[in-house]
Design a protein around this nucleic acid. Sequence first.
RNA 1: GGCCCCGUAGCUCAGCUGGAUAGAGCAACUGCCUUCUAAGCAGUAGGUCACACGUUCGAAUCGUGUCGGGGUCACCA
Length: 636
Amino acid sequence: MENIIRNLIIEHSNELFGSQIEAKQVQFQLTRKEFEGDLTLVVFPFVKLLKTSPDLAATKIGTFLQEHLSEIKSFLVVQGFLNISLTENYWFSELKKIAKSENFGYQKANSKGTIMVEYASPNTNKPLHLGHLRNVFLGYSVAEIQKANGYKVVKTQIINDRGIHICKSMLAWERFSPLNEKGERETPENTGLKGDKLVGKYYVIFDKEYNAEAKLIIESWENGNFDGFSEQVKAEFLKFEEAKIGKTENAIIDLSAKIKELAKNQTTLMRDANEMLMKWEARDPQIYLLWTTMNSWVYKGFDVTYKTMGVDFDKIYYESETYLIGKEVIEEGLAKNVFFKKDDGSVWIDLTSDGLDEKLLLRSNGTAVYMTQDVGTAIDRFKDYPDLEGVTYTVGNEQDYHFKVLFLILKKMGYSWAESCYHLSYGMVELRNDQGEIGKMKSREGTVVDADDLMDEVVSSAKKMTQERGHLEGMTEIEKENLYRQIGMGGLKYYLLKVDPRKSMAFNPEESIELNGNTGPFIQYTYARIQSLLGKANKIEAISEVSINADEKELIKLMVLFPSILQESGKENSPALLINYTYDLVKSFNQFYHNVPVNAEENAALRNLRLILCDNVAKIVKNAMKLIGIEVPNRM
RNA sequence: GGCCCCGUAGCUCAGCUGGAUAGAGCAACUGCCUUCUAAGCAGUAGGUCACACGUUCGAAUCGUGUCGGGGUCACCA
């Protein structure tokens, strides 16, 4: 409707204003609830052209529009705002359009090009935690939203399965795992532990053991004992110690950290881990077998978690397979002089002319760094999917700089598709402690919220609360368990996705399981109420003309907005827009539900219209929540 | 320190391509279940939109500066 009016005004702008106007000068907003009207035209931009008062200008435009458009019932001018009321026929025709389409607001599937959405991409040494939940739910939802907007979407993740950190857990497992009575080391099978948890456990053990070893080394250095260490190490240590003299407390802490770093690199554990990495790169069969085995444990564990999360992937990339591509490309770039080599053999790119720094691409020993593999992975992806129109990387905002550099490198390498790469940069999840203070999650301080544990908790909390107040008569145990899961997971997803993804957010455990107010269960509850209502109703007939009240019109108005909200949330990569919209719709529905009878309405035509409203609100709620990854139950 | 992001009610967040009296939820207080699920609805109270200046008919929204918070500046990933 806005467009029809806008075009009409532009078409007749000479006649109305005596000059040609642009589309953006014609601004609309929904009429605020306290005024009568449906649509509001802001007339201030035209006041100057007409050289008259805002009210007179508005009246002139209003009169003109009413003469030309039959959909306009009336208009009112308030303080320079032209409030337009549309006819009931117009609203009925809109409702009919909504009712006709099963997936109202969705674009035709695969009508647009292919895009790739990367999310999750965990480190194989650490079980998934709260931060991953935001990442995974966000990435999944964005992928689903893009699908609904007509794109063909490839959901992907890159698995960080290579490098020194992997060797750390492998080494710790070989060295520190106790043997059982059969002489076997710990496995997921003989311990019952989830594979990712078991491997994560050994990563922590490595960290502990090698910190302990480093501490002993520092002690012996401090006592002047450098037996077994090179002159170079000794010199470095003494240099740091000397630098401490007369420095501020902070500088001393800094220097101590450097000493610790030096000592860590001298530990036998670190040396052995490095040796293992070399063997891995040389495809040593024994190491490779161990690597494959332990990785398979991790993947099995992650799969369980992803299943609980309700997410999936179409294609998985492994750094162990793409880092070599990256290395080749770096060589290529070196030949093309995009990169340069320093005396020690390390390869860099100079981005100072772009306002950035120099960035390392290959270590002096020729091994790949993070950036190397990301370059390789990107290229691999566009090779696998030649018609790819874009890649969205769902990665936390602490890596903003990394992606800026990555895309710039790809561009400088001459890949035209570099422009279509997009970093969906989301904010941190901060944790609330008992005092209400906000803190960061740190694995070393034990403040990490494990993803599996958290999901278990929200589901069991949903179970408890649903048993207290739910309507569960006649449901089987399986149905009940499924309901608890839907409510618990729905609440968690809603809680993590309702805020703008770009902003950092506070995680409050109590709020995340809340059932009242702006929560997932509130949406689900409303949906269940509608289903209950529809279940008791007669068959729905075609719409016949009746007079509608403000509550009913409000619902149609909100439903009409859904397609543009869906597009916007796709454009912005923001599930939050969809959630906030659904909340508004549901809130309005509950007012409607409270204010007017549906099945008890005696006028058959009106009852039928209200049923149509209920049915379509439910349809939109269900379709919107599906894109968030939230299921809506028929009963709760 | 350089660069990036953020600052709206006690708390968590909407609103930001400039538009009417800045909105929700939670927490507090009040009402409403002999009509369709009270996980609901209605109401009271709560604001110098961090601060200052500027642009404009009009600024929470745009610009500049200040203050406060976070991130990042690794031969880690």
